[in-house]
Design a binder for these strands. Structure first.
Length: 283
DNA sequence: ATAGGCACCTGGTGGC
DNA sequence: TGCCACCAGGTGCCTA
């Protein structure tokens, strides 16, 4: 379920295991994910220290001491599994290799970080840290929704010319980074806006109102992920998925949760993807 | 330039 | 139990 909040949760979970720690060896178990891995990736990720873990949109960037960074995307089904790490009183134990363990980082501390991705829509690349922004996969991505560049004036303007439905527009990473199918549905529900409405057709105040709601939806989810991290740390080291309850996503046919609303959650298909919404209180 | 559809993959679920 | 259709949290690329 890697949208921005999940990726941020993964980053936070990996940080204590990877930041400031040397990768002793990296096993690369196949030649590619969505695209071929960069040349000699295993060797280039052997005997290098990770300085810092960052996130940009749904990407994790591991800045290395060499001036290069490892770029990681989890796709639809990518997960990170920690094993052998001592974090506080807990020791991760996820000892047996599993199917779809594509890349394994053996940290000098003895911890292992395993990238597992059944569908292989994920990606990895190595780029120059200084020019990371210009990387093909990053250069066209819009502002971080939790950052300062994302504000009412920006979004009002960015949506002003969009002829697509607001659902589709918010899913567009060029407009705002990090939202995926779940959190766009949740955002529009909280905003009381129909996902079917054309973006440009929404009044300026309604477009502007999306900004604090997007921030809140994502912050809430990150917080939920943060509390779930504690559980993962005690258990199997599985980062990437956490229990979270949604107001509309996946709730087709269920009652709308808005006070006084008697509507049922509907499912529609937009750009080939499911949209969940209440037709009664989302207009 | 922009909007929409397809493709890339595997696995889980529900119906017959 | 088996088989099949359909669904899934993303996004680059191709087409109109």
């Amino acid at each position: 379920m890697p949208e921005l909040p999940e990726v941020e949760t993964v980053r936070r979970g990996l940080a204590p295991v990877m930041e400031g720690v040397r990768i002793a060896k990296t096993d690369v178990n196949r030649p590619n994910l969505r695209w071929p891995f960069p040349e000699n990736m295993g060797e280039r990720l052997t005997n290098v220290r990770v300085e810092r873990l960052r996130r940009r949109s749904k990407y994790i960037l591991a800045d290395l001491e060499t001036g290069e960074s490892l770029l990681i995307h989890l796709g639809m089904s990518g997960r990170m599994l920690i094993s052998g790490a001592k974090l506080g009183a807990f020791v991760h134990d996820h000892p047996k290799p599993e199917k779809h363990d594509h890349v394994v980082f053996h940290m000098e501390s003895g911890a292992r970080v395993t990238f597992n991705d059944p569908r292989r829509f994920g990606a990895m690349d190595i780029l120059d840290t200084k020019t990371a922004d210009q990387h093909k996969l990053l250069r066209d991505i819009g502002p971080e929704p939790l950052g300062n560049l994302f504000d009412e004036a920006y979004l009002v303007e960015a949506l002003a010319t969009k002829k697509s439905p607001i659902k589709t527009a918010l899913l567009d990473q060029k407009i705002v980074a990090g939202l995926g199918n779940i959190y766009v549905c949740e955002t529009l529900y909280r905003a009381g806006i129909s996902p079917l409405r054309t973006a440009a057709q929404l009044s300026k105040p309604r477009r502007a109102a999306l900004v604090p709601i997007i921030r809140q939806v994502l912050s809430d989810a990150i917080e939920a992920g943060g509390s779930s991290l504690k559980d993962f740390r005690q258990a199997d080291g599985d980062l990437g998925y956490f229990q979270h309850s949604f107001d509309v996503y996946g709730r087709e046919g269920d009652a709308c949760r808005t006070q006084e609303c008697t509507g049922l959650i509907k499912r529609a298909v937009q750009s080939g993807r499911s949209t969940f919404y209440c037709a009664k209180c989302q207009r």
